[in-house]
Amino acid sequence: MKLTFPTWLTLARIVMIPVLVLVFYLPYRWTNFAAAGVFILAAVTDWLDGWWARRYQQHSAFGAFLDPVADKMMVAVALFLIVQGHPTPWMAFWAAVIVGREIAVSALREWMAEIGQRATVKVAMIGKIKTTAQMVALACLLYSVSPNRAPTGIWLGEFVFHVGDWLLAIAALLTLWSGGQYLYAAWPALRADEAAAASRTAGARKAGKE
């Protein structure tokens, strides 16, 4: 298996996950800058590997599988760190909404792929807007809630935190909206499969009686 440049970028993003955890907890005053910087770099590689693959036609099955895995792992780990750094009910709720939706949509896509209708649940524009809001929110919050963050002034620190807090809430709501769109698009296939399963059950019962 030949690894393309976009796939190497995706692998680098996975390597950044333990780096993010490490710098988040390092006992130095600059760790909030480092944690936010690592996350921003990961987000840039996420954009770059997709652009490069489209621009130079370097698509691969392995890369297509690995890219969403790397994205979801990075987002989930960042959310866990943020909730640990700022353990409030609302922060935990928004994190649970985002992670729960990702699990549900991933399962839905996998099932749709099994029945040959993977394209039915493709990424919509609302999903891209959600991703942008989510990435900015997580970078702001990693900068704001790191345990050993450098003093940046009360006003600046509060401003960055509130920007991240509000954007995370917006991203979570957009997550529910886009998740609903995925479910709506897949609903005809879900109903058809349910009807087919009922028909098979009825046929088996009839054959058993005969």
Results as ranks from 00 to 15, higher is better:
123 V>Q: 01
137 A>K: 06
162 H>L: 14
119 A>V: 09
3 L>E: 06
60 S>L: 02
88 T>R: 07
87 P>I: 15
15 V>F: 10
146 S>Y: 02
70 A>Q: 10
144 S>A: 15
191 R>H: 03
28 Y>P: 00
22 L>D: 13
66 L>D: 03
67 D>K: 08
48 L>N: 00
27 P>L: 09
162 H>D: 11
157 G>K: 05
152 T>S: 08
5 F>L: 15
187 W>I: 01
104 A>E: 14
16 M>R: 05
118 R>F: 14
26 L>C: 10
57 Q>S: 15
185 A>H: 12
143 Y>N: 06
102 E>Q: 04
76 A>I: 02
185 A>V: 04
107 A>D: 02
67 D>P: 15
144 S>M: 06
66 L>Q: 09
158 E>I: 12
81 L>M: 12
134 Q>H: 03
61 A>D: 04
115 I>Q: 05
6 P>E: 00
104 A>G: 12
47 W>E: 00
99 V>S: 09
146 S>T: 12
155 W>D: 08
160 V>Y: 10
91 M>K: 09
158 E>G: 14
162 H>M: 12
192 A>Y: 08
133 A>N: 01
109 R>H: 05
198 A>Y: 11
133 A>E: 00
91 M>L: 12
156 L>M: 14
52 W>S: 03
187 W>A: 11
154 I>V: 15
201 T>L: 04
141 L>Q: 03
142 L>V: 10
154 I>Q: 13
143 Y>F: 15
73 M>F: 08
203 G>M: 02
80 F>W: 14
62 F>K: 03
135 M>Q: 07
158 E>P: 11
158 E>R: 15
159 F>K: 13
174 L>H: 12
128 K>M: 07
160 V>L: 15
80 F>D: 09
28 Y>W: 11
140 C>S: 13
126 I>K: 03
85 G>A: 09
108 L>G: 04
153 G>I: 15
181 Q>P: 05
132 T>H: 02
51 W>E: 02
114 E>H: 11
44 V>P: 00
202 A>L: 10
16 M>Y: 10
197 A>T: 13
4 T>V: 08
78 A>Q: 06
91 M>G: 05
146 S>K: 03
53 A>P: 12
205 R>Y: 14
111 W>R: 13
69 V>P: 11
83 V>G: 01
68 P>V: 01
81 L>H: 11
171 A>G: 09
187 W>Q: 08
190 L>N: 00
189 A>D: 04
188 P>T: 09
194 E>H: 10
182 Y>T: 04
186 A>Q: 03
43 A>L: 01
21 V>H: 08
103 I>H: 09
